[in-house]
Amino acid sequence: MEPLLAIVVGVLFSTAIYLMMQRNLIRIVIGVIILSNAVNLLIFTLGRLTRASAPLIPYGQNVPLEDIANPLPQALVLTAIVIGFGLFAFALVLTYRTYKEIGTKPVKEG
């Protein structure tokens, strides 16, 4: 499954970067959201995938009895999802405020 997800991650990166190079603020914000999803998926994939079982320790045991998924990337990605949400909210409000103040949305042309 890892190779397939690697391709998906690549497509997500491409699209995100393409959108971030646009003039339109909404597209840029969408690009940022896709980028944060892409990075999360990348970290998750790099930690290797397993269909076996979740990183939980069964009751009555001190350590898991069988193979479990790698918990570290999951912990990293979990906070990253929430932070990504925070970033998105901030970017969205900034866009909204810019739009309200200036009335136009194209990013400054150099």
Binding site: V82, F85, G86, A89, V93, Y96
Partner: peptide, 13 residues
């Protein structure tokens, strides 16, 4: 923090 953040954003908007 998570509840506060999310609600601060949503209420404000």
């Amino acid at each position: 923090v998570v509840v506060g953040f999310t609600l601060a954003v949503i209420f404000s908007l």
